[in-house]
């Protein structure tokens, strides 16, 4: 089936985007990424340890940018200014790579997006030539504004980052998809494979997750489950589900030719 995810003109076979945080070590990170089939991985940008061990393993060695499309994020940024600075550093670090994940957070308890700062940062980044995939609330009006600014993917939360609470408001996700034409990718809140399938059945273009995989008892097995959940949900969406019939059953077997003890 030729069903590609297209972001900023580039096509991807996998609709599962995976974060690289919270794994036991880089070996587990890589094994989970491989099991998930993902092509796009998020990374964070952080101050280097001064006087760090020269032989300290490096994420870029374990997860080579030649094999995966990097999506540097702005996790931990609470202002547009910090987010923009972080992504400028990321672009320099990754040799001019311009596809980025913008997230500007509101507070450390909820990690809920600050959409005012997010919009300000998105305007600056788009003007500077970044291809911005943006984490945002599930507000359809904000989502549309972010698209109009020029973001290449809208990534609403399904529930709070790292909560594993699943798809709490499918109605809002649907509202967003109804008015946005760039890919809508659920970012945050997925807890297990059925959550990923639900997001895809709704018509989302993809799902981005980290903790749902890294926080599982067996992250590599969960990565495989998520791959299947996303694929199953996508195929169900494309297949078009049967209409729901309220308050009445419909037999699956023929209604004629049934043996009967009645006279006729």
């Amino acid at each position: 089936m030729n069903d590609k995810l297209i972001i900023a003109g580039k096509s991807y076979s996998s609709r599962l985007l995976v974060g690289t945080g919270k794994y036991k070590d880089f070996t587990e990170t890589r094994a989970a990424l491989d099991a998930s089939g993902t092509e796009i991985v998020t990374v964070a940008i952080r101050r280097t340890n001064l006087g760090q061990n020269a032989n300290e393993p490096n994420l870029l060695d374990a997860v080579p940018p030649s094999k995966f499309t990097y999506l540097p994020n702005t996790a931990g940024c609470y202002t547009a200014e910090d987010a923009v600075r972080t992504l400028r550093l990321a672009r320099e670090l990754l040799d001019g790579h311009s596809l980025v994940k913008l997230e500007v957070l509101g507070d450390p308890q909820s990690l809920y997006p600050n959409v005012i700062e997010t919009i300000a940062a998105a305007k600056t980044l788009v003007a500077e030539g970044f291809q911005v995939m943006v984490y945002t609330s599930d507000d359809p009006i904000i989502a549309k504004q972010l698209e109009d600014i020029g973001c290449v993917a809208i990534m609403p939360l399904a529930s709070l980052i790292g909560s594993g609470m699943g798809i709490l408001n499918p109605w809002n996700l649907q509202l967003i998809m109804n008015r946005v034409s760039v890919p809508v990718i659920v970012d945050a809140g997925v807890g297990t494979a059925s959550d990923a399938a639900i997001a895809m059945e709704l018509g989302c273009a993809g799902v981005l997750m980290n903790t749902a995989i890294a926080g599982a008892q067996n992250p590599v097995l969960m990565a495989s489950a998520m791959k299947k959940g996303v694929e199953a949900g996508r195929e169900a969406y494309l297949a078009g589900r049967m209409p729901k019939k309220l308050y009445s059953a419909s037999p699956s077997s023929p209604t004629t030719g049934i043996i009967s003890s009645a006279r006729n």
């Binding site: 940008i45 280097t48 980052i161 903790t211």
Partner: peptide
């Protein structure tokens, strides 16, 4: 100066 690297993150 800020000197940064890429690390694991979501």
């Amino acid at each position: 100066l800020e000197i940064v690297v890429a690390v694991g993150g979501g």
